[in-house]
C-alpha cells in the first residue's frame, strides 16, 4: 500500500539547513500496524506528515495506493487525503466550536456524502467508540480519554485505508491510554493500516512492527509476534 524510497526531507532557513529525514526506505502493507519510535527530533513527525500527505518530501519517491504522490500539489494531496487517510493527534485537535457529533461528521461533509448516509455512519462510529451518549457535548465538556475517542471516531468515520496516529496516548493516563490503544487495534483488525508514532514501548507492543528512527535514519526494524489479519 505504501512504498517510500530514499525519502529525504530538508528544512531550510536563511542560515541553517536541517535534515529531518535522510534516505528512508519504507514499505507498509494494507492492514499492517506499524509503530515508529525514536528520541525527540529524530524525524518521526516529519515522516508521519509525509506519509499523511500533509507535507512533500524534498527527495525520493513516495507511492501511495499505486500513485506516485511525491510531487503532488497541495490541492491534489488534499483531494487524495480525503477518505483515504485519517489522523489522530496527541492533543486531540477537535474543533472546539463543533459538538462531538459534528466533529465526527466533518470528514463526511467534505466528502460530500448524502445526509442520511452521514447520520448512519456517524452514529455507527460513535457507537463503536462508545461515546454516543455524549454526541451533543462540546469537546471541552469531555475528559481527555473521551476526546481522544472522538478523535479516533473522526479519523475512521470515512473508512480510510490508512490511519496515522501521532502519540495518541501522550496526553492520557494509562487507563484511558489503554482504552484508546484497544480502539486503534479494533480499527486495525477491521482492515485499516495504522502508522503510529509513540514514545511508549507498551503502546508499541500493540503493533506488528516497530521502526526505530535516529537522526533521520531508520536504524532498526523489529517484527513482533502479533500477526496481522491480511498477512
Amino acid at each position: 500500500m505504501i512504498k517510500a524510497d530514499h525519502l529525504k526531507k530538508v528544512y531550510r532557513t536563511d542560515e541553517v539547513e536541517t535534515t529531518a529525514l535522510n534516505n528512508v526506505n519504507l514499505e507498509i502493507e494494507a492492514g499492517e500496524f506499524v509503530s515508529v519510535m525514536g528520541p525527540s527530533g529524530c524525524g518521526k513527525s516529519t515522516l508521519l506528515n509525509i506519509l499523511g500527505l500533509l507535507d512533500n518530501p524534498s527527495g525520493g519517491t513516495y507511492n501511495f495506493l499505486g500513485h506516485d504522490v511525491a510531487g503532488y500539489s497541495e490541492r491534489q494531496r488534499a483531494q487524495f487525503r480525503k477518505g483515504n487517510i485519517g489522523f489522530v493527534f496527541q492533543s486531540f485537535n477537535l474543533i472546539d466550536e463543533l459538538t462531538v457529533y459534528e466533529n465526527v461528521e466533518l470528514p463526511l461533509l467534505y466528502l460530500g456524502m448524502a445526509s442520511a448516509e452521514r447520520v448512519r455512519r456517524v452514529e455507527e462510529t460513535l457507537e463503536r467508540v462508545n461515546i454516543m451518549h455524549r454526541k451533543d457535548h462540546f469537546p471541552q465538556q469531555l475528559s481527555g480519554g473521551q476526546q481522544q475517542r472522538v478523535a479516533v471516531a473522526r479519523a475512521v468515520v470515512a473508512s480510510p485505508k490508512l490511519i496515522l496516529a501521532d502519540e495518541p496516548t501522550g496526553n492520557l493516563d494509562s487507563t484511558n491510554g489503554e482504552e484508546v490503544m484497544q480502539l486503534l487495534t479494533e480499527m486495525n483488525e477491521a482492515g485499516a493500516a495504522i502508522v503510529m508514532v509513540t514514545h511508549s514501548p507498551a503502546d508499541a507492543e500493540y503493533s506488528h512492527r516497530i521502526i526505530h528512527l535516529f537522526d533521520g535514519h531508520i536504524v532498526t526494524e523489529n517484527f513482533l509476534e502479533r500477526k496481522y489479519a491480511h498477512a
Binding site: 499523511g52 488534499a78 477518505g83 474543533i95 467534505y110
Partner: peptide
C-alpha cells in the same frame, strides 16, 4: 488557524 488546519486534515480544500 488551528481550525483551518484541522479542517484541511479531515479533507477540506481551499475553496471550501
Amino acid at each position: 488557524a488551528r481550525e483551518v488546519g484541522l479542517r484541511k486534515v479531515v479533507g477540506a480544500h481551499r475553496g471550501q
